Computed example of a mutant assay.
Amino acid sequence: MFVLKTLCGPAALQLLRPFSTKTLPTLTLFTKSPCPLCDEAKEVLQPFKHRFVLQQVDISLPENKLWWDKYKWDIPVFHLNGQFAMKHRVDMVLLDKLLQDIEVKKA
């Protein structure tokens, strides 16, 4: 309990995530550097960050050539649990609905 009293807010949530009995969905961000739209998208995602694990895939790396060929003109692109969700900008209404659908299935 000392840890919880010492750490409040997001830091405490990050610490507790590995011990959670529920597995959070994975939101994959296909990005490259630099990507101002990706940076903006990550800021927009902040209110949702406790509801998913964010995984970033740099499509400019040689091992991600498949994703480069597919998304080089469309980043940021988001997949939720491996399924295409949206591209170019974060659609907060859509993301909330997709996350709710997953949360309801797990309940």
Rank of each mutant, 00 (worst) to 15 (best):
N64E: 11
R51G: 01
M92I: 11
L99Y: 04
F84K: 02
C35N: 01
I59Y: 00
W68T: 00
K87W: 07
F52H: 07
I102Y: 15
P36E: 09
M92N: 12
E43R: 11
F30I: 04
Q56W: 02
D58G: 01
V90W: 05
R51W: 01
V104R: 13
L16W: 04
I102Q: 09
Q83K: 13
I59S: 00
V53F: 10
T23L: 14
A85T: 09
L24P: 07
K5G: 13
P25C: 10
D96R: 15
T6L: 11
V57M: 01
D96G: 15
R17W: 08
H79E: 13
Y71W: 15
P76D: 08
H79V: 07
L98V: 09
V3R: 05
F84G: 08
S60P: 00
L54M: 04
K87T: 07
V57P: 00
F19D: 10
D101K: 14
L98C: 04
F19N: 05
L54P: 01
V104A: 12
H50G: 14
S20A: 15
D74H: 09
T28I: 12
V104W: 04
D58K: 05
E40K: 14
L16D: 06
L99V: 04
E63W: 01
N81W: 03
L99T: 06
I102H: 15
L98M: 13
H50C: 09
F48A: 03
T6V: 12
K42Y: 03
A11F: 05
H79R: 06
Q55H: 14
M92Y: 03
V77Y: 00
L24S: 10
L7T: 07
A12Y: 08
H88P: 01
A12R: 15
S60Q: 06
F78S: 02
K105R: 13
I59K: 01
G82R: 05
P18W: 05
F84M: 06
D96Q: 15
L13E: 14
L16M: 12
T31R: 01
F30L: 11
P34N: 11
K42W: 00
P76W: 02
L24D: 05
L99E: 07
L4D: 12
L7R: 08
A12E: 12
N81F: 02
K106C: 11
L98S: 04
T21E: 15
V53T: 13
L27F: 09
P62W: 01
L95W: 00
I59P: 00
A41E: 09
R17T: 14
F2L: 11
Q83C: 08
T6E: 09
A12V: 08
L99D: 03
F52G: 08
L16G: 11
K106Q: 15
T26N: 08
K70T: 12
P10H: 05
V53S: 09
K70Y: 03
F52T: 01
K49N: 12
K105F: 05
K22Y: 12
L94V: 13
K72T: 12
P76V: 02
C8V: 14
